[in-house]
């Protein structure tokens, strides 16, 4: 899985390019998110445009990143953009839609930090 990272006006946009964010790739994804946070990135947008399947490992990576940010002295957040319907469905099933704010576009997610 490729993970594209772009900085837009202080917000870091992370886009996993594979269609599945599961046990096979979740460790790589988690490691990338945590290293970005370690480098000082605090405002993250995860662009899930390409992801049509996510399992508990992939969700765990997002939760780990969010918890790491909330523990740090400089507050930050993980916000989601372009979440595909099957992923929305799972977020609702396990109630993580209460925790992660989702936006229809990357631009809207970036704007939300301004």
């Amino acid at each position: 899985m490729q993970i594209e990272v772009v900085n837009d006006n202080g917000t870091t946009i992370v886009r996993p390019t594979g269609d599945r964010l599961d046990i096979e790739v979740a460790a790589q994804f988690r490691s990338k998110l945590l290293s970005l946070i370690d480098e000082g990135n605090r405002q993250l947008v995860v662009d899930l445009k390409d992801v049509s399947f996510i399992d508990s490992s992939g969700l765990g990576a997002l939760v780990s990143a969010l918890k790491t940010l909330k523990r740090s002295s400089i507050a930050g957040d993980v916000r989601l953009a372009r979440v595909q319907a099957p992923v929305v469905s799972l977020l609702e099933v396990i109630r993580l839609n209460r925790v992660f704010t989702s936006y229809a576009s990357v631009e809207q997610a970036v704007q939300s930090y301004q």
Partner: peptide, 17 residues
């Protein structure tokens, strides 16, 4: 399912779903 909310993120499990 864990009772998750933004107010209690520190209690949110990163695994076990």
């Amino acid at each position: 399912l864990p009772d998750v909310s933004r107010e209690h993120i520190e209690a949110l499990p990163a695994s076990g779903y």
